[in-house]
């Protein structure tokens, strides 16, 4: 395959992994985070340390990177998820920036100048495989009682408690799974770029992930997939007229948000059965339209 396209697909896949995690947290549990780049950084540096300094194989290193990110998220969650209001969102923002600043000063990892020489283990096939597993895990989780409880919390927190849902426990579970996805994405990134630098994980990165989730549609896994593909590919495709690149990107996001505030696929999933339903509904509408002309008003 054309290495240029392959590169874009790998980047989209890495973004997708982090976006899927954020989708669970923001799209399905209703919690906004502006620190997911921080979890990516933790996963990235952890897994790179394991492969470079301890010569671990790739996949276990990735998983441990995800695990460590999840542990960090558990600490933030423990402190802030009990509080009412936007403390959590603000805490994640502070956390993301703090992680970056700390890494700037850790000479063991090369500090602010960066850390070259990480082995190139990430390729299209393992990115694809990992994302496939990630989507399946997420889909199964969302369709279980645990996932439904998270959705319930997003919809109406007090009512969730009244029907016996332990809101704190479900929020922290969602956060930990979400952070582990971001951590794995960070590991994939480290072993694709073969280079890590703290500024790769700035607030801009966290915001980009949130934009993708909202663009794709809150509460939709397929929307997140579509969003990650479109919004990673778009800046690359537009690279040829570079000065207008970010303007076009911004315009695309704004147009979608104005014409479809719920995002591309907000609340809907593209599955074979849902496409069939949609097709049937469209057909019925067409028929109803024809009958309406003859029948006049009924109600």
């Amino acid at each position: 395959m054309n290495t240029y396209i392959e590169g874009i697909l790998i980047l989209a896949g890495i973004n997708l992994m982090a976006v899927l995690g954020l989708s669970l947290l923001t799209g399905f549990t209703g919690l906004f985070s502006f620190g997911h780049a921080g979890f990516m950084a933790i996963g990235g540096y952890t897994s790179a340390m394991l492969t470079v300094k301890f010569h671990w194989p790739f996949i276990p290193a990735l998983l441990v990177g995800g695990l460590v990110a999840a542990l960090f998220s558990a600490i933030i969650g423990k402190v802030t998820l009990n509080l009412k209001g936007d403390y959590f969102c603000i805490a994640t923002l502070g956390f993301g920036e703090a992680i970056r600043l700390i890494l700037d000063n850790v000479q063991y990892f090369g500090g602010a100048r960066g850390w070259p020489g990480i082995p190139n283990y990430t390729n299209l096939w393992n990115v694809l495989g990992i994302n496939l597993v990630a989507v399946l895990v997420l889909a199964n989780l969302i369709r279980s009682r645990h996932g439904r409880n998270m959705i319930a919390i997003r919809e109406e927190e007090l009512a969730s408690q009244i029907v016996g849902i332990n809101v704190f426990k479900h929020k922290i579970t969602s956060l930990m799974i979400s952070a582990s996805y971001a951590g794995i994405a960070g590991g994939l990134m480290a072993h694709y770029m073969t280079f890590l630098q703290p500024k790769m994980f700035s607030l801009v990165k966290s915001t980009e992930l949130t934009i993708i989730v909202i663009f794709g549609g809150l509460g939709s896994i397929s929307g997140s997939v579509l969003g990650a593909l479109v919004l990673t590919a778009l800046p690359e495709v537009l690279r040829s007229f570079s000065q207008w690149r970010l303007v076009c990107y911004g315009l695309a996001v704004i147009i979608i948000m104005i014409s479809r505030p719920e995002g591309l696929l907000g609340g809907y999933e593209l599955t074979p059965s849902s496409m069939k339903k949609l097709y049937n509904r469209l057909r019925l509408k067409k028929q109803a339209g024809k009958q309406g002309l003859e029948g006049g008003d009924i109600q």
Binding site: A152, E155, E156, Q161, G164, N166, G267
Partner: peptide, 23 residues
């Protein structure tokens, strides 16, 4: 906690209905 009360066996409805509206 409210969720514990529910587990113990007390549930309620609200004066101003609180459904999961969009579901």
């Amino acid at each position: 906690e409210p969720y514990q009360i529910a587990e113990i066996g007390i549930t309620r409805t609200f004066q101003n209905i609180r459904l999961f509206k969009r579901l």
